[in-house]
Design a protein around this nucleic acid. Structure first.
Lengths: 340, 340
DNA sequence: AACGTTACTGGAAACGTTTCCAGAACTTGC
DNA sequence: GCAAGTTCTGGAAACGTTTCCAGTAACGTT
């Protein structure tokens, strides 16, 4: 393994000079610059990241802390984020967390240990306090996060998300406009201070807007976005408990897919007997039977925004921005008009 | 940021002693050990990875080089691998590659630059030459790889995979035993020296075994495992070209799901008009309509084996092993018996 | 001719660890 | 009571960079 020292020796210059050349510092003559670069090439020099990191006390790696990697929407997002981050010359470290773990605490620790230059949080809760935020001394962007509980000042955090409440509202609107009044909801958790709670809020707001009474019997909590067995069970329980609904709003595509299967197993076909609307717009949902009517999240744009945000934030610490994306309804075969 | 030096000062011992305590070296008295650990705790000490990496000239990170992250089978595998790797105290770096890139070359470069201690290759080709393998100076495990083209000696590589040929064969067997003789295949690429070629081979072998003539008209190449649009188009072309088949063998669950949709759009329902069998056993395929008949890969075990293999290999360089897992048929609603 | 600039270069400290070597303080065995 | 271990500890070098400071040489200016 050849080092900067070897190059210096080979060229008869000082170590510092080689370092200057390699880091494109201006104050070195064209002649020595050429010689050094040539030697570096010839000796097949590869910089030692650890040494550089040590003296700079920073690295080139950004961590992605994810709760619930199995969520297929996240999978795609992760893919895009990783692509962009690497493209821009940084490295991405993937860290999964259990739902029970405290993402901020873990993030803070990782940042110190591994000299991270940035953190992307994906899938956490939505009620960070200023005190908690203060734990993190590293540029951080919260993906699919909205400061919906108003715990933070806009100048204190960066985020990329859709308007979850609005999307849920739109989903319910769609159903109502097709004549549905008895609309069940399939959510992960009614009050987890996170995406599911927010979409649940949107559902309730929409009902109220249309003068429909909220019925707790029509709420099914799955406890998860990705465990299909649990989603299936929750749907089945809902059907057994109160099968009077004519439509289901599922807060994620995957839930909708599983719900359709559960309905089918209980002798109710979609969309004849129940309509289903969801949020996500996975590629997959255009190829299911029936195809899903879903509010599409602009995944590509969101992933790009995540990568761009964190890198901007690293370059300009403290310059926080929030990005909110619009969802778009993609009509599918999972709904039908009824005579309300 | 408190360092080892601060602890030493605080306790009135030497730096080296602190290091020994922190690394669990035996030759230090219980008394000093306690004092040091206590101080470390009190001063909120966090080790500096860069410094350690520098002096050890190695890191604690294992890279996962993936071709085609969007493949949902891979998503799950990645999740499990990441979980196990972190659990065992290492860090996982995710690197995606285009299909066009040379994974070994990229791996070799990354290993040097980033002082990787190991590489997991996922989704590459199956015909590495000994010369190519020599590029990689770091313990490496090839996931979902079989040395099917016999280019390597068993003592020269580590791998974790299923027997792709056998699985494909089993899939076709299943269809034949239900009376099917005109069996189409949906594959990514007939000759990519990779998973798809191997499964294609298994398909051909099975046909031959049952005395069924191979018909090139019944072969549909999608060119991809995950681009659903492309899979849909390939299936549609197949149907238009020769719709005489009574069954389709799709080499991956996702392909089967899209194929079923394409068939449906062409007025052929599954399993009434065509049976479909595939390989993967995604959780999802138990919740589609119809559910898939598929050969299940033991994803959990495979992911575990990947993590275990690479760590074993790091600890005992050169000790190569190959793991081959059995697939199990999971019957679903996508097939039916016909009178052949 | 003396002086101040400018352009370039070398030396050396520092980053936070690990690890080798040597030495001090005890034990043990005879 | 002395040599030979044993057990624990400290000092210092090394890992490969970056960066600060000082210094030299060449060049214009006055």
């Amino acid at each position: 393994m050849t080092s900067i020292k070897d190059i210096a020796l080979h060229c008869g210059v000082a170590i510092s000079t080689v370092s200057r050349v390699l880091n494109n510092h201006p104050d070195v003559s064209q002649d020595t610059r050429d010689r050094v670069l040539q030697a570096a090439e010839a000796l097949n020099y590869i910089p030692n990241t650890s040494a550089r990191n040590l003296v700079r006390s920073s690295s080139d790696t950004i961590a992605l802390l994810v709760k619930g990697v199995s969520n297929p929407f996240f999978s795609k997002l992760i893919k895009i984020i990783d692509r962009e981050i690497t493209l821009r010359g940084y490295t991405l470290e993937l860290h999964q967390m259990d739902t029970s773990e405290d993402e901020l605490r873990i993030g803070a620790q990782l940042a110190n240990e591994r000299k991270l230059i940035g953190i992307l949080f994906l899938g956490g809760r939505f009620n960070y306090s200023p005190e908690e935020m203060a734990l993190i001394h590293v540029p951080s962007v919260f993906c699919t996060y909205t400061n919906s509980f108003g715990t933070l000042d806009a100048s204190a955090y960066s985020s990329v998300a859709i308007d979850d409440k609005q999307a849920a509202c739109d989903a319910v609107d769609t159903l109502v406009s097709l004549g549905h009044r008895k609309i069940a909801i399939l959510t992960a958790n009614e009050n987890d201070k996170s995406i599911s709670e927010l979409r649940f809020q949107g559902y309730k707001d929409a009902l109220e807007k249309h003068g429909i009474a909220f019925d707790p019997n029509l709420v099914a909590n799955t406890g998860t976005f990705s465990d299909m067995r649990a989603i299936y069970e929750a749907t089945s329980r809902l059907i057994r408990r109160d099968s009077s609904f004519t439509a289901i709003f599922a807060i994620a595509d995957l839930m909708a897919i599983v719900a359709i299967k559960a309905l089918s197993d209980h002798g109710r076909s979609v969309p004849q007997d129940s309509s289903v609307v969801s949020i996500d717009g996975l590629d997959l949902s255009e190829y299911t039977l029936p195809t899903l009517t879903t509010l599409v999240q602009p995944t590509e744009e969101m992933g790009l925004a995540c990568a761009k945000s964190i890198i901007d934030l690293i370059k300009h610490p403290g310059k926080h921005r929030q990005f909110t994306f619009e969802t778009v309804l993609r009509p599918g075969g999972s709904v039908r008009k009824i005579n309300g």
